[in-house]
Design a protein around this nucleic acid. Structure first.
Lengths: 186, 186
DNA sequence: AGCGTTCTGTACTGACCACTACAGAACCGC
DNA sequence: GCGGTTCTGTAGTGGTCAGTACAGAACGCT
């Protein structure tokens, strides 16, 4: 009961996500948000809490997306598969014009914990699909390499690289795990 | 003639550089700078112009440093040499405790032009040391791959990775160019 | 219709932002 | 010592920041 809100909370969250994605947390002001969302500040605070809480909810929404690059990798059934899936998804998504370029998580300084989490998920999956002890030992390093690539690809996309440029770099990166990951990586 | 300034301009520029390096351009306020430099705002403006100009001078100083990762690569005399030198320098520098972690140029959204310039320098060098037509054709992609790695390594270092972790990832990346750069990369 | 509840728009808070006007201090040449 | 020049410290400028107090509007329930 009570007066119903005049905007779609879900659509508003999506707009906020895109704004944070494009400009980053600090560079997105409450004023930017209320203007883009077409609502007043009190409505925003009532619906989402403070700026930080809104950001966290936006990030959670971002990570739950079916477009997730890390999730694409987790579906892989071999080391090469895992990395190929991640890089392919990244090349598609990071340069897409459907949404801001690059990756929100991989371009926000304040999301180190999310990056560590994703890296761990990838390492675990690489451990699962490892075919020998060496591959199992190298899982963390290979996962670190993959996510280092993702951060770099995200930045490259933000700097203007198109999907083909990302794809060329990603393909080159794929050779690394074929050639070197089974061999000792340390 | 006139009243002499009471601070060392060079030392002040260095402190400003470190502050920008650590926090980024937008997150470093004039108030932060005057406090860290131990001078008043009018002195800062008189010596360096406005905030943007100070930032640009700080970046120029950063890029002129003998620790430059790109410059280390330019001294290489083969493709493998160029990349090995870059990655080794990056692993050392990005995790060093002598200065803020990571790379100023590779972590500042506003320095895309500097990144493009460094990528071009590396591509040119790779073109020079190429031993066949295929390597020459792949120079831009290999340079893009190398600088994508650098951005990722910089972020990884900022997230807390130590020199050894960076080194392991870098070594893995080096396999990519050995295995795949001569082969068609697109 | 009237009440309780919840939302909305206006208008504001103190804090911080980049930047500067102004007055006095510290130097030079004379 | 005196004038000209350049720097320094104080104290501000208008603007934007995140967040909110308050009054009225729009609903469901009775």
């Amino acid at each position: 009961m009570g007066r119903p809100r005049t905007f779609d909370r879900d659509a508003a969250l999506d707009k906020a996500l895109r704004l944070f994605w494009e400009r980053g947390y600090e560079q997105t002001s409450i004023s930017d948000l209320t203007q883009e969302l077409g609502i007043g500040a009190p409505s925003l605070y009532a619906a989402f809490g403070d700026k930080r809480t809104l950001f966290e909810e936006a990030v959670a929404r971002y990570e739950a997306s079916p477009r997730s690059v890390t999730a694409a990798g987790l579906a892989g059934t071999s080391r090469r598969d895992v990395l190929r899936a991640m890089f392919e998804r990244a090349a598609q998504e990071y340069a897409s014009n459907e949404h801001p370029r690059g990756c929100l998580v991989n371009s926000a300084p304040e999301l180190a914990a999310n990056r560590a989490h994703n890296r761990m998920l990838t390492a675990n999956r690489l451990g699962q699909v490892a075919e020998d002890a060496e591959s199992r030992d190298a899982a963390e390093t290979v996962a670190a390499f993959a996510h280092v690539m993702l951060v770099g690809l995200s930045s490259y996309a933000r700097d203007g690289a198109d999907e083909q440029q990302l794809r060329r770099v990603a393909e080159l990166a794929l050779h690394a795990v074929e050639a070197g990951a089974g061999a000792k990586a340390g």
